[in-house]
Design a protein around this nucleic acid. Structure first.
Lengths: 197, 197
DNA sequence: TCTGAACGAAACGCTGGCGTATCGCTGTGA
DNA sequence: TCACAGCGATACGCCAGCGTTTCGTTCAGA
């Protein structure tokens, strides 16, 4: 723990500071998921974290600063798998769909979108995080071009959006989940029917 | 909650009432677009509408009631066009993309998503409105099945989501617009390359 | 014409969150 | 061992928005 933590924040060595930051950021995500960005208050975050609100103000200047930091702690929970490119794309989308159904990220997503709409800095953070996840899929699809699973000359960014977009749409607009069968159907639709190798 | 059957109220009421409702609902959408759901206050809506806040409370029970009603006034701005099914699908998506770039609906969308996430009634309203727009495209695609432009046996709901999803994703997650060239590229990707019939 | 409903403005008490300051306690690191 | 930084708690004045009420004016419609 000490070794791994020192690599991330060598300056904040006082474990009390590290602990405060950790529980407050976690509480901030909880509150964000529950009441949204507009409903989030410093007092609620402090109460949820079990700290005094002076401790929150000791580390962040205010709500926007805290939320921006909290959003950055939302790491991608997508793990690489084995198999053909097609199998890995399917697994990737399955993980996205599962995360949409139940994850801190999904619960915070409406609040993040709202916050990003109101503040340019938050938008940049969100755009960067979304772009990083997207790039994982694009890289995978590029590998598919090499193996012939994806036609050469395809716009891989657009292709990635065609794969992920429907899942996002169903989560945010239609408010319905995407199950594994639908994911497979989706891959068939976008990448063409499965070959029989 | 006030007048359930008043979505298209043509019945004669006091013109002062009709006028108040109209300017207040319009102001509510403006405020919603500007500060989001959490930031919307009755006082701001009243001030924007140029009415006393007692007039707002005279017609709605509170913020949630008002916002629900305001959302319902957001009608689809998609107009039917002529041409082949493929041309009409392209035109449809072009209108969706244009609306995403600049429309009251797009500006309110993050706030609506946020509100729908917090209140079941709002979610139902949003789901219904989104479903109605989606059905327009599904009907168009069904026509495409009849003419052979869309393969029989395709899940038209999923196909529609594959067409619209990328536009939504780019608006809400990547924060970048979709131009006409990309729309055409998208149609090529989903419906296959253009035939020459 | 005349009655009453709808209106705008303003004031009401109230609540809750703001950001700051102070205090005594505790754990850290030299 | 010990000085001190970080801590929780609490209280502060402040203000925005809440939802209600009152009141004088305006305008619709019988």
């Amino acid at each position: 723990m000490t070794d791994t933590a020192s690599s991330e924040q060598a300056l904040d060595v006082d474990p009390r500071v590290e602990r405060s930051r950790r529980v407050i950021l976690s509480a901030a995500l909880d509150v964000l998921a529950e009441v949204g960005y507009g409903g989030l208050t410093i007092e609620a975050v402090a109460a949820r974290a079990g700290v005094g609100k002076s401790t929150v103000y000791r580390h962040w200047s205010g709500k926007l600063d805290l939320v921006d930091d909290a959003i950055c702690t939302l790491k991608s929970a997508i793990f690489p798998t084995a198999g053909s490119v097609r199998e890995r794309v399917t697994a990737f989308l399955g993980q996205v769909a599962a995360a949409m159904a139940n994850s801190t990220w999904s619960r915070c997503l409406p609040a993040i979108i709202e916050a990003a709409e109101r503040d340019p800095e938050t938008m940049n953070i969100h755009r960067r995080l979304a772009g990083e996840r997207r790039q994982l899929l694009i890289d995978l699809l590029a590998e598919g071009v090499a193996t012939g699973a994806v036609p050469a000359g395809t716009d891989l960014g657009l292709l990635a959006d065609c794969l992920v977009g429907p899942i996002i749409l169903r989560r945010l607009l239609l408010h319905e989940p995407v199950d594994d069968a639908t994911v497979r159907q989706l891959v068939d639709q976008i990448l063409g029917p499965a070959s029989s190798d």
